[in-house]
Design a binder for these strands. Sequence first.
DNA 1: TTGTAGACTAACGTCGACA
DNA 2: CTGTCGACGTTAGTCTACA
Lengths: 76, 76
Amino acid sequence: MDVAKAFGSVLRIERKRAGLTQEQLALICGYQRNYMSLLERGVHQPTLKTIFDLAGALHCDPVDMVAQVARMMSQS
Amino acid sequence: MDVAKAFGSVLRIERKRAGLTQEQLALICGYQRNYMSLLERGVHQPTLKTIFDLAGALHCDPVDMVAQVARMMSQS
DNA sequence: TTGTAGACTAACGTCGACA
DNA sequence: CTGTCGACGTTAGTCTACA
C-alpha cells in the first residue's frame, strides 16, 4: 500500500470521527478545502508540518495517525 | 520549537545511533547527501514518504521518530 | 565529514470555478 | 458535500562543486 493513500484513508477516518466536513476541517487548520480532497484520495503527499496541523485540528495525536498509516501499510 | 528543527534533531540522533555518516545514510535511502544536511538543520520539511524512507534506512520505527518530534516540540 | 551555494525539476499547497 | 480542473507561487528534493 502506498504511503500517501494510507494517510488519506486515516485522514478520512479521523475526520469523520470528529464529525467534520472537508470544508470545516480546512477552515480550522488553515488549508484549502480542495487540498483536503487531494490528501484523502492520496493524490498528494503531506509534509510533517501538515500532519501536525491536521492532527491538531482533529484533536487527535499525530503520532497515532502515523501509527495507523504504518499499520495500514504493513497489511496490504 | 519548530517542526522541521525538531525532526532534524531526531534525525541526527538516530543517524548517529545507527553509526552512519550523512553520506552513507543518503546512499542507503536513495537521497542526496546534501539533502540530509538540510533536513538535520531543519531547513527543509520532510514529506511523510521521506520520513518512512529514512526510518527504514535507519532500522528504526517511523512512528517512534514522530513521537520523539512531538515530545521535543512540547518541551521547548 | 559536514555546511553551503546555485541552478534546476518535481511536488506541495493556493485560489476560483463548476459539476 | 465532494471531486475535479487549470493556473499559479512556494517548497521539497536533485546535482555538481568548493570550503
